[in-house]
Amino acid sequence: MPVVHTPESEYAKEMRKWEAHHTQYGPPGRPFVFSEYPLRMYKATRQSTGDRTFEAQTANNEHERRNLESRGFVVGGQQAALDALEGVEREHAELAANREWKIRHGRVGEAAVKEVRAAEEEAGARHLPDLPIAPKRRGRPKKTETPTAA
């Protein structure tokens, strides 16, 4: 059998002291205080099969939040993570399209085209936002001694 407490009872008055929202005991007795942390952050990734997966982490302070944001996590739930993933994929596709346009219109040398095609083949179906830069050798080339016939 349920117990009914009227708002004027001592029990209801005590319960209101601990509540921050309106309840069955009446209006709140303590003010609601917003706390930003702990904060749930999400990251969406695309698998090689094309499926999307989600990863979730909790940030307990500003330092952890910045750390997670640097690794691609966003605030706002799974939909925000999907939007961020689609934005990154769109940017990579635009960069790849611009690179292809430069190749087709002769803005890139033949050696560079070979490097681009090799990097694209290695990456597979994934868009490459940029290509690895080959280190340049500085200075004069090393002398090679050629044996002389005696």
Rank of each mutant, 00 (worst) to 15 (best):
Leu39Asp: 05
Ala93His: 01
Asn67Cys: 09
Pro38Cys: 02
Ser35Met: 12
His21Ser: 02
Tyr25Trp: 02
Glu69Cys: 05
Glu55Lys: 14
Gly124Glu: 00
Lys17Cys: 09
His21Gly: 05
Glu100Phe: 00
Tyr25Leu: 04
Lys102Gly: 04
Glu100Gly: 00
His5Lys: 12
Arg140His: 06
Leu82Thr: 15
Pro135Leu: 00
Lys13Gln: 09
Thr23His: 01
Arg117Asn: 04
Arg99Ala: 01
Tyr37Trp: 05
Glu100Thr: 08
Gln47Asp: 13
Phe34Met: 09
Glu14Ile: 13
Leu131Ser: 00
Ala125Ser: 14
Arg52Leu: 14
His63Thr: 06
Gly106Ser: 06
Gly26Tyr: 01
Ser48Ala: 14
Gln57Asp: 02
Tyr42Pro: 05
Ser35Asp: 12
Ala134Val: 08
Met15Leu: 05
Gly77Trp: 02
Arg104Gly: 03
Thr148Asp: 10
Val4Ser: 13
Glu94Lys: 03
Ala56Ser: 14
Ala112Glu: 07
Ala123Met: 07
Glu94Pro: 05
Gln47Ser: 13
Trp18Asp: 08
Ile133Trp: 00
Gly50Cys: 12
Pro31Phe: 10
Gly76Pro: 03
Gln78Glu: 11
His63Ala: 11
Ala125Gly: 14
Glu110Pro: 15
Gly76Ile: 07
Glu100Asn: 01
Tyr42His: 09
Thr146Asn: 12
His5Phe: 14
Asn98Lys: 11
Thr146Lys: 13
Val3Ala: 11
Arg104Glu: 03
Glu91Gly: 13
Leu131Asn: 00
Ala81Phe: 04
Ala20Thr: 08
Gly29Tyr: 03
Glu10Thr: 07
Gly109Val: 00
Tyr37Phe: 03
Pro31Leu: 11
His105Ser: 06
Arg30Trp: 09
Arg104Trp: 01
Gly109Thr: 01
Arg16Asp: 00
Ala56Asp: 15
